[in-house]
Design a protein around this nucleic acid. Sequence first.
DNA 1: CATGAATGAGGATTCATTCAT
DNA 2: GATGAATGAATCCTCATTCAT
Lengths: 202, 202, 202, 202
Amino acid sequence: MRIAVDHSPAILKTAARYFARKPFHEVHMDDVADACGIAKGTIYRHYPNKEALFLAITLDWMDRLAEQLHKAARKPRGAVERLEAMVASVAEQYRKQRDFFEVMQREELNGGRSVHPERMHKREILRDAFAGVIREGQRAGELRRFDPTVAADLLLGMIRSQLRFGDPKQSPEALASRVLDAYLNGLASRRRRTSHQGDARA
Amino acid sequence: MRIAVDHSPAILKTAARYFARKPFHEVHMDDVADACGIAKGTIYRHYPNKEALFLAITLDWMDRLAEQLHKAARKPRGAVERLEAMVASVAEQYRKQRDFFEVMQREELNGGRSVHPERMHKREILRDAFAGVIREGQRAGELRRFDPTVAADLLLGMIRSQLRFGDPKQSPEALASRVLDAYLNGLASRRRRTSHQGDARA
Amino acid sequence: MRIAVDHSPAILKTAARYFARKPFHEVHMDDVADACGIAKGTIYRHYPNKEALFLAITLDWMDRLAEQLHKAARKPRGAVERLEAMVASVAEQYRKQRDFFEVMQREELNGGRSVHPERMHKREILRDAFAGVIREGQRAGELRRFDPTVAADLLLGMIRSQLRFGDPKQSPEALASRVLDAYLNGLASRRRRTSHQGDARA
Amino acid sequence: MRIAVDHSPAILKTAARYFARKPFHEVHMDDVADACGIAKGTIYRHYPNKEALFLAITLDWMDRLAEQLHKAARKPRGAVERLEAMVASVAEQYRKQRDFFEVMQREELNGGRSVHPERMHKREILRDAFAGVIREGQRAGELRRFDPTVAADLLLGMIRSQLRFGDPKQSPEALASRVLDAYLNGLASRRRRTSHQGDARA
DNA sequence: CATGAATGAGGATTCATTCAT
DNA sequence: GATGAATGAATCCTCATTCAT
């Protein structure tokens, strides 16, 4: 019996590199195997098929992101500081694991068909991490009343837009600062707050 | 004599339905042709290949969205009102042309590789439509100073997050109202505006 | 549109030649396609997969045999003559379509698992063709009382054993004559008929 | 010190169960190994490859059958009694070792290509066991003149047909009785013996 | 001797695209 | 222009076999 080397992480990383650069159907298992320096069959010992491999990249990334996020959410005191740390954490994770992020973004596999339940679940965990902090901020009076889940989704949407379309050279901290500025203070000028403010439901 | 019918719109619509529901590589030209009631070869008379068909769906939607958007941007007076009309317009377009929107979201084909130039260009047009109004709002003093392009991206990110993850039953107007509330007023409580405000660059 | 040539018979014939000479898993669709002078994909337009192709060979042969059999059963007057014609017919069909017979014999695909229903049904048709004539022979007093279905199975068993293990050079008629001699007259010597005779149930 | 266990019989038995239920190419060495509770490599220590394993099942069964057969052929006095004992023996063996029988029936591996020599030889041994008794019966006047080899083949054909298609609930003795009734006495009515009788050659 | 992780040749099947009618 | 039968390159996945431990 040969020594069991856990190839999973290497496979995941290599596959992420490929899936991040090409559409699903243009990524070949052969290529991934070659790039990993293992035989094709070995991939199949870890992931039953190409789709599962693709999915695993996503889920793996989400797991790691969730971990980072919880870590970031623990340190600072105020909700605002914690949100800022979390956003920076996401941005940093993105920089470090860009391939994984790209793959996760793609959502190629759940084209419209009701999203993969595990992915869905993990996304909810991420969102809830933000929503939890937002809720605390509201209790502490730092944040105004607004549905925390919606608020979390909005923040994630902002983050995503900056990761994808924002200046790729800005630091995670700068990105976090900029996003939170807009998120917290809004873009209306101070003297002209819209009448919307009252609409929000906690 | 057979009357020449322009199948293009029908093909686009049918194909959108398929691409919206399945990943690119699971959509078969046969299916689309059958669903269109035409022969496979006829599709190839309109689109040189599957990828072009996919892309055409995207571009078509973006064109129509841009048109809607400009219409929406024209009517109201103030920048805020115009933004609200534009967001509602996007949401409505999304409801009415959900398949197209789903396809456009996917970005399956430009997995990382330098995004298709025309798509890129059209997305910029959309963003610039928002950025233009934002810039005007800033000039008029309705909106505070903040890079308009970034601001537009952030707004698009918020819209996207609500379209994908928000309450699917809320009306376009409700969605617009809620998004703009957060976008304009921010989520910090009034008494506790963060120090970020000063960071923004116009 | 190209002219539709029905490739089915050619595919069946070629495939039979291959399946008759090699075990299922050693027959390659490529080989069959090449030998047919058509592309691999064309086979799949006619048969959804290799197993279906294999099965089709069997069913096709059984159909043709049943047809021959009914023809043979029609001409002669007496049951014995008809049986003889039928056996000769089977033997002749075997000679002419040996490949098909070999494939049918193999039963490779229904290894133990409850036999394919259509095959089962067709085999019953063949058996019943014999059983019907046997029953008539019993009514006419030519044949003694014995369960006709069992009697038919026994006759088919004899035929099979001769086709597989008998002298390959003997004519269909000789084979039929020899088999029927044993089948009708039995192998006991005349003076020593066993006590079994009484056991048979019509 | 590990006690060396001879896995051969267990492997053979387990493999037989699999090969009896699925076609050759659907039986996986993994399955057999797992079901045996041993590692795949261990099977290869006993049988050089899958084909050899398959063949071994066949040969093993034939050996055991031949042994039974010779035992059965020894006890009774008359040829007819001995034949009956032998047929019952085959039927019993079939009931007890159905898996092996099924495998042996299949002949999957010698699809047309000149049959495996050892198998061929063993089948001849079986046939000759019957042929020998038949020859004695002819000498003793119990059986009429008829090529003993052909006669043996015919009897085996009848047995096979009953094992495969006959009533699965009838006892080995009942099967033997029924088959031999037909085999010895023939199915023609007594008054109407066909002219075939004269055709047979010893 | 046993093990079972790793291998990778091998083959079934798919499906975008073509083109003769 | 429209058709859809035919194509065959392209790829996923399998699984018998090996061999380091």
